[in-house]
Design a protein around this nucleic acid. Sequence first.
DNA 1: CTTCTGTATGTGCACCATACACATAGCATC
DNA 2: GATGCTATGTGTATGGTGCACATACAGAAG
Lengths: 124, 124
Amino acid sequence: MSTNPVEEFSVGMPRNYLRPCLLLLLAEGTSHGYELLDQVTALGLDRADPGSLYRCLRAMDEEALVHSFWEPSTSGPARRTYALTDEGREWLHAIAGSLAEVSRALDAYHRRYQKLVEQDEHAR
Amino acid sequence: MSTNPVEEFSVGMPRNYLRPCLLLLLAEGTSHGYELLDQVTALGLDRADPGSLYRCLRAMDEEALVHSFWEPSTSGPARRTYALTDEGREWLHAIAGSLAEVSRALDAYHRRYQKLVEQDEHAR
DNA sequence: CTTCTGTATGTGCACCATACACATAGCATC
DNA sequence: GATGCTATGTGTATGGTGCACATACAGAAG
């Protein structure tokens, strides 16, 4: 066996992917950071960094894409609950569009890759 | 109309996307930097940065994923032509797999977004 | 009461991919 | 000999991301 392919190299999720994820989840309903930390895993961000997530929420709050309020918990510390604003919803639609472009690019890549693989198999 | 949505914010292509693009294109045939600069646009990287591209090629050369040789041009300066190695081809397959994971994540996002849009339309 | 675990939010910082600007050189043409 | 296109590079600042760490509340266990 040759040296480990893809040694410590990995393609990551799209740049700034966290923000669209949070906007989408908050469009589905209000939530708080610790809960969102789990929910984003369903969108491809496993073991997302808490620091980045809280910072992203805070930034969107300052940009008025979301607004936040403290909410006591029945068991555990209080939560800063976030809700999407109208402006945030506009952003969600715009960002979903540009994410679709990324998706189309990846599809183009995959089609081209598959074509290559088929040619290689045919050549054997 | 409110302030411009997505003001100077944009989701980008996946992190390290340039490398898989170059590996795929070189798997289709030998090429050189200046030509690849045009070819990557077909994979979603429009107006790719020449500096980043040449640096990426150089790095993959040092990692023996590709090898290069100077080739004179019939009209114009000489070209450093790159060709994929066997190890580079292994990487291509591995990276194509992880790119497919990203693609699945984006599909999950899109499905969830569409579901939300449909619910909003139904609620009107 | 003290400790431990789980919930919940946050800051500091270093790394590195990306983008921008810029430099160099060959070759053809006017 | 100046301009324009081809072709390859370097220097550097910015910014997103991830890692480490700090804080605090609450319940349960010992």
